[in-house]
């Protein structure tokens, strides 16, 4: 595909025509920013939601599995259009940055200032390192297959280590009420939420925290496999939605 591109002769616009296209670019930029904050954030909040909202939900079993798996969806769909049609190699980074902007605004004004949750309790996770690698692999390889396998896997595997510097301090063990907890657990018990029973039922079910240090890497590798498949699926979903068809009737 890139070989064909180089054969074409591009004549850049000049004068008024250049200004028209540049003005259109800026309009699209504003449009895309709010589109991806709004749509990706809603998708993310209602599929990953609780694991991203709360510090005590950021466990070793589900959080490293669910977050990249649902987080790679919109980046793949947007890359399918931005890279294939416009040769813009930042679809994933754009989506993840938009998501971060949306989540940070909400955590500060909706959680902290409205309902007084400490900001440390509602820190969003970041997928930016994975998104940068995903974009870089697509740009360098120009291949859906390579990006799905290596980029999708990298997106999942980078998630836990890239969040560890932000969240590691909340996994410090403490003794509380004759039991061992993490600082994150203590946040959860101090700030009772209506979702509390589900937290107790879902988080780290089965391991009882006796599976040693292996739960997180196992979840990450499981996520890596699933992300490769999810990336491919969403690439085609993105292409399908970016149809240019006109219909006679609906």
């Amino acid at each position: 595909m890139s070989a064909n591109l180089t054969k074409q002769i591009f004549r850049p616009y000049t004068g008024e025509k250049a200004r028209i296209t540049r003005a259109y670019d800026y309009l699209i930029l504003v449009l895309a920013l709010f589109l991806f904050i709004g749509s990706f954030h809603l998708h993310f909040a209602l599929t990953v939601g609780d694991w991203d909202f709360w510090i005590d939900w950021k466990d070793r079993q589900w959080w490293p599995l669910v977050t990249p798996l649902m987080g790679i969806t919109f980046p793949a769909a947007v890359q399918a259009v931005m890279w294939e049609k416009f040769r813009l190699p930042f679809g994933a980074t754009l989506c993840v940055t938009a998501l971060l902007i949306g989540t940070w605004i909400t955590r500060v004004f909706a959680y902290h200032y409205w309902n007084y949750f400490p900001i440390n309790m509602v820190l969003p996770a970041t997928m930016l390192p994975g998104a940068l690698v995903l974009d870089a692999i697509l740009m360098l390889s120009n291949s859906l297959t390579i990006t799905a396998i290596f980029g999708g896997a990298a997106f999942a595997l980078l998630f836990y280590p890239s969040n560890w510097p932000i969240l590691g301090m909340f996994h410090e063990p403490i003794e509380y009420g004759n039991g061992q907890l993490t600082v994150a657990d203590l946040f959860g018990f101090q700030y009772i939420r209506t979702g509390m029973p589900e937290y107790l039922r879902i988080i780290e079910r089965g391991t009882l925290r006796t599976y040693g240090q292996y739960a997180a890497p196992l979840a990450a590798f499981c996520s890596a496999l699933l992300c490769s498949l999810m990336y491919t699926l969403w690439w085609y979903i993105g292409k399908w939605f970016a149809t240019v068809r006109y219909l006679n009737k609906i």
């Binding site: 599929t47 209506t194 993105g238 970016a242 149809t243």
Partner: peptide, 27 residues
């Protein structure tokens, strides 16, 4: 609000996927 990511909320999720149609409008 036991579980925000519960399937009962996925109707909203599927609806918002269609916003990706903006790519086609742009093209």
């Amino acid at each position: 609000e036991e579980f925000f990511a519960a399937p009962i909320h996925w109707g909203f999720v599927i609806g918002v996927w269609f916003a990706l149609g903006v790519g086609g409008i742009l093209l």
